[in-house]
Each structure stands twice: as C-alpha cells, then as structure tokens.
Simulated assay, not measured.
Amino acid sequence: MRLTVITEADGEVAAVQEGYASEAPKDAEYAVIVAGEGQTAHEVEVDLPESIGELAPEELLRTVAAHLAR
C-alpha cells in the first residue's frame, strides 16, 4: 500500500495517510498531510491489508516505523 508518512526529527511517526500526497488530484478538493518544521515527509510502499482502517492504530504505527527503519 502506498502511504505518505510524516516523522518527527527523532524519527517517531507523527502521521500516516493512505496514498502519496504528491499524487493528489490538482483539479479537485483533496486534503493531504504535510511536514511541519522539524518534520520529514516520506512516500513509501508498505505491505498492509486492503485498508489501513482494519489495523489497530498501534499496529499501523509500529509497522510503518519498522518499514522506515530499513
């Protein structure tokens, strides 16, 4: 699954959104997450179930953090 992930300066995952923010439609209203001061945005592909809503929040964050650590 394609994800946009925001991390804090220490590498801790701050936010996760399904899809790549860079691929958001430009001709329609569409909200994406963006990195703030001291944060970093990542666009990654992670092996997850069909919908991230099926995962407990802790499991999602742990899985994404483990993927980023590679």
Rank of each mutant, 00 (worst) to 15 (best):
R2I: 08
Q39Y: 15
A9V: 11
Q17T: 09
I6T: 06
D27W: 14
E8A: 15
H67N: 01
A56C: 02
E8D: 10
P57H: 07
G11V: 04
S22T: 11
I33M: 11
S22Q: 11
R62K: 15
A66V: 01
K26Q: 13
L3Q: 03
Y20S: 07
E54N: 07
G19V: 09
A21H: 04
T7I: 08
I33R: 10
Y20W: 14
A28R: 15
R62L: 10
A69I: 08
Q17Y: 05
A41K: 09
V44T: 06
D27R: 15
T40F: 03
R70G: 01
T40A: 04
A56K: 15
K26E: 13
G19M: 01
H67I: 00
A28T: 09
I33H: 12
A31C: 13
K26G: 11
V34P: 00
L61H: 07
V46N: 00
A65T: 02
A24S: 08
L55P: 00
R2A: 08
V32D: 00
G11Q: 05
I52F: 13
V64K: 02
T63F: 07
E54Y: 14
S51Y: 14
A65L: 00
A66Y: 08
P57C: 03
V34H: 14
D47N: 07
L61M: 15
A35Y: 11
V16A: 11
A69K: 13
P57Q: 12
Q17R: 12
A21E: 04
A69Y: 03
Y30H: 12
E37N: 09
H42L: 05
A66K: 06
D27I: 14
R62E: 13
V64S: 04
V46K: 01
E58W: 04
V13W: 10
A65D: 02
E12H: 12
I52T: 06
Y30T: 06
L3H: 05
E45Q: 01
V13I: 13
T4N: 08
V5H: 08
E12D: 03
L48T: 06
G53H: 14
A31T: 14
E59H: 09
H67F: 03
D10T: 09
V5G: 02
V16N: 04
G38W: 15
I6F: 03
L3R: 05
E18W: 09
V44Y: 03
E12Q: 11
T63R: 10
A24Y: 10
V44M: 09
L3E: 04
D27C: 14
A24N: 04
V32P: 00
E29H: 14
E50L: 13
A65R: 03
L68P: 00
V5F: 07
L61G: 05
T40C: 04
E29N: 11
P25Q: 10
Q17G: 03
E29T: 14
L60Y: 06
V13P: 00
V16S: 04
L48F: 08
A21Y: 10
T40K: 11
E18F: 04
R62V: 11
L60Q: 05
S51T: 10
